[in-house]
Design a protein around this nucleic acid. Structure first.
Lengths: 143, 143
DNA sequence: AAGAGTATGTCAGGATACTGACATGGGTCA
DNA sequence: TGACCCATGTCAGTATCCTGACATACTCTT
């Protein structure tokens, strides 16, 4: 009858894996007082300093309104800084503070351990294969 | 400095793919007046009739409280039925009505098209490889 | 047989993210 | 240059999902 067949559906398996990873990350970040979006924002800023609110939102898969609320909290807690006035246009480039880098360091190792657990059943070749296949999924859906 | 490297992180790519699929499914289900959880619940019931509220919640990756709210709406709209009293224990087995089956049929083809788009860049062998790798991720994280 | 432990359905309250809307700044094209 | 279009930051209101809690029913162990 042309159904989706949950057991063999790549979409369902993708959701299963994503959900399992989400739960595992939540579990290791909670003791550190961080949420996944909180951590993702810091990680993104560490690798691409000066990102704007909207760019951070896209990189962490939330709306720019949600990211704005988070950034205000992070700024209040002294983890990130934003200039008072925009250097150009309305874009406010955000950077990590020293405290932000310290908090990221502890979280980053915990998250890395989770990812290594997730990949522990695959050979390096299979891991590369997986990266390639996931990128293909994204490319076709974005098209 | 041992960071996560977003560009090559399998976890990040997994989130990207999952998010892209989520958006694509939302886009095709919205015109039909359905959410993803709504559709997933119907699809699950179609393949495994008689599932309980808690089982449906686990299968759609939400809490049983959220699924309970959804089931009450689906029951009100005549898409599913639950017995007045539990045949055994507290478990209320849920089944699709004819109207539920009709609604699922239209959604199912739309969702199948999205999944085919997502897989359109892979050979059948690669699709099987992907299923195997995703299952491995889940298995290692559940452990 | 009885108690502990576990799973279920459901209610209430709170946290989180999203949609809608607005003003502002830049880029493009006629 | 000016009109149009698009992106950004931000405010408010809403929707959605989750956490906490409780009563009930089954299972397993002693």
């Amino acid at each position: 009858m042309g159904q989706v067949e949950l057991d063999t559906s790549v979409g369902y398996l993708l959701k299963m894996a994503s959900s399992a990873l989400h739960n595992a990350m939540e579990a290791v970040l909670r003791p550190l007082g961080m949420t996944i979006t909180h951590y993702s924002c810091l990680e993104l800023l560490s690798q691409r300093p000066g990102l704007s609110n909207s760019e951070l939102a896209r990189g962490t898969f939330v709306t720019r309104q949600s990211m704005n609320v988070l950034l205000q909290a992070l700024e209040r807690d002294g983890l990130v800084t934003r200039p008072e006035r925009a250097p150009s246009g309305r874009v406010l480039p955000t950077t990590l503070t020293e405290a932000g880098r310290r908090q990221l360091a502890s979280a980053s190792s915990a998250v890395r351990a989770v990812e290594e657990t997730m990949l522990s059943g695959m050979s390096p070749d299979e891991q590369n294969q997986m990266r390639r296949l996931l990128r293909s999924c994204v490319d076709e859906l974005i098209r």
